[in-house]
Amino acid sequence: MRRQFVNDPGDVVAEALEGFAAAWPGHVRLNADPAYVVRARPASGKVAVVSGGGSGHEPLHVGFVGTGMLDAAVPGAVFTSPTAVQIRAASRAVDTGRGVLHVVKNYTGDVLNFRIAGELLADEGVESGIVLVDDDLATDTDDGPGRRGTAAAVVVEKVCGAAAERGADLAELTALGRRVAAGSRTLSVALAAGAHPGQSRPSFELPGDEVEFGVGIHGERARQRRAFGPSREIVPQMVSPLAEALGLGRGSRVLAVVNGLGATSDLELYGVFREARRVLKDAGVDVVRSLVGTYVTSLDMAGCSLTLVRADDEVLELWDAPVATPALTW
């Protein structure tokens, strides 16, 4: 039996958005219907960077609205894409005449609704471009909709947000975002599934001696279960396939994100990062930047994801650029 702080489950997203906007008045403004979040102080003369997706992954995406990152975020219902009308309204609201970059996690509904929004915007003379984030190595198969988008979205949004702030045009931003996405891979491991708002049972049950290996961020099962064990045994199983997929070797530089899936403590996440860094160091891979914390969640799932991103000087400089959002500030 799982207990939650919920009124009517159908109101969870709207109520959370209202609370979020009230908690961050210096950073964001909420438009309630259609629902989207914009910066409190709109930017001018730059390409607008907009992202969105189903709710249940907080702080993604609304937590990344602010200077140096997103101009707007469009939240859908829990685990459901926002509508094309929502995306169009948010994009219109932040377009300064230089076009809108849509950062989209690769899920059928999100891709469809963002593509439709792009066509609706084109009819109104607003230019837009799409960067698809598809970093989940566990869904790297030849058929089907391709790799899912997960925590690399944070890196793509940060890097593109910084480049937009510096005046990059839409074509440059699209190319940059695609390059970062192409150089990103993620693997996620769950220790326990999350529960939908208002539901007392998690979306799947895991025996105490197993982990869900290669899990997604929508409460679905993974293709594999593996033995549970200490961090030093689980983390290398995540690092090695990622390093192989990205062709990392001696002298490679990466940005590493260790992300909590909703119910895993920072204490554990920093321990995971320590293990990941050690394994990478043994392989001669240099972790030049890192982000450790809870950024892309699957409701209250216990577990973590590890994202590695190939880092070059341009990506690092943009990563280091100032950012001021509710969930990420430096």
């Binding site: 459901t80 926002p82 509508t83 009308v85 929502q86 509904g109 469809l112 609706l120």
Partner: peptide
């Protein structure tokens, strides 16, 4: 069309909208 495109973020609704 507008109503369907604004109603739900699934896949069949938006396609009917278009």
């Amino acid at each position: 069309g507008e109503t369907f495109l604004g109603h739900s973020g699934g896949t069949s609704g938006p396609l009917f909208g278009m």
